[in-house]
Design a protein around this nucleic acid. Structure first.
Lengths: 209, 209
DNA sequence: AACGATTGGATAGTACTACTATCCAAAGGG
DNA sequence: CCCTTTGGATAGTAGTACTATCCAATCGTT
């Protein structure tokens, strides 16, 4: 198919498709002449992947490029594939240098992870994300005790085990890619359901006005 | 204190503080002369609130304005206060008009919420967020069964109950404000812990390279 | 009283991201 | 043969959150 048909079938403007090609998210079509190139189902599938990661996963274009490069590189192992996707997730947090509050919170985060025995790299962005939240909570005079965290840890462990468990056997590359996708998309499911459950709980406890 | 001291103590540039005043996030200082105004602890507290909502909660400035207006308006009830914060959360999803996939997914979302018996308004943004995710999952050939959702629903219910339960008695306004804050900030705790637990599970199942 | 620094207030500019519009020459098709 | 489409390049736009500059009126100090 030509680019106009790809545009129709994907629902994306031709200009956007050209933009994705320029940015390295989508391979060029097979050129049949100087001004003619052929696209196929793989391009359509890729566009669906891009849109899911962009719209639902809220990933920046640069991160999606890194992900599709990792997917296409057979030398990248399954665990690294997960890591590439996970480390690309937003929000990205910039750790300040020379902030004593940050340093203290970061030590608490590292201690928590060590105590739980989790295998997480030192440079995992989620460490910074949690650190940032601890800092903000303390600045607002919330104390964060292990007891406060326990329900969240339990939920996180249960869900992560559930998500990864299904992929444990027969960890083919194709499955790994789908698992990575599920990781990104089901995080949004969790967020949405959590918000809905909160609204319900708030309605029951405080009553609608 | 003058604005320069407020700037020092909050760690924010004077220009940013002026910007927040212009945008209605921070009240003006008490003018003692044409070119002199006095700021106090309440301004510092407000700045901490603003930074927590902006950096950690990732809320847009316009949403923070709506929130602080609701906090300061005694006519706004506790449940509405929660709602104002929750409905301001990102990501905001724009429902397309005339998309059959969207319509079908939206009906599933509504049915799910009805079946769970949750009290959630028709216009809750989280409905659209969940709908969008369902659409993307299906376009990528993931089927989403009630069984797939159960672990997420269970986790969401447990956490929401835990979060709201602590506030049920003595629901003073000050507590409601803090509860609203906790809602926003603990969502990030959940996200961060979930990602960390996923990395750990991935490391254990697929091994680090 | 003089004077350099600070302040409040207004206006304009910047950085980043993700597109979106325009242009052009070279095919392709009826 | 000519009108449309295409690939490819370049430039422009929209939204968000700041950030920089300017100006005149003080303030504190001398």
């Amino acid at each position: 198919m030509r680019i106009s048909e790809l545009s129709e079938r994907s629902g994306l403007p031709v200009q956007t498709i050209k933009f994705y090609i320029r940015e390295g998210l989508l391979p060029r079509g097979v050129a049949s002449a100087a001004t003619r190139a052929e696209y196929d189902q793989t391009h359509l599938d890729r566009l669906r992947l891009i849109r899911a990661l962009r719209e639902v996963g809220n990933l920046p274009v640069a991160a999606i490029r890194r992900i599709v490069e990792a997917v296409e590189d057979p030398a990248v192992g399954l665990h690294d594939l997960f890591g590439t996707a996970q480390y690309a997730l937003r929000p990205r947090v910039q750790a300040p240098e020379d902030d004593p509050d940050w340093g203290a919170a970061r030590r608490d985060v590292d201690a928590l992870i060590a105590e739980l025995g989790w295998q997480v790299t030192e440079r995992a962005p989620a460490r910074d994300l949690l650190t940032q939240t601890f800092v903000a909570l303390r600045r607002l005079d919330f104390t964060v005790t292990p007891d406060d965290l326990r329900p969240y840890v339990e939920a996180a462990v249960a869900l992560a085990e559930h998500e990864t468990g299904g992929l444990a056997e027969d960890a083919s590359r194709a499955r790994a890619v789908r698992g990575m996708l599920a990781t990104v998309l089901y995080e949004q499911v969790l967020i949405a359901l959590h918000r809905l459950a909160q609204e319900d709980a708030s309605a029951r406890h405080f009553g609608p006005s």
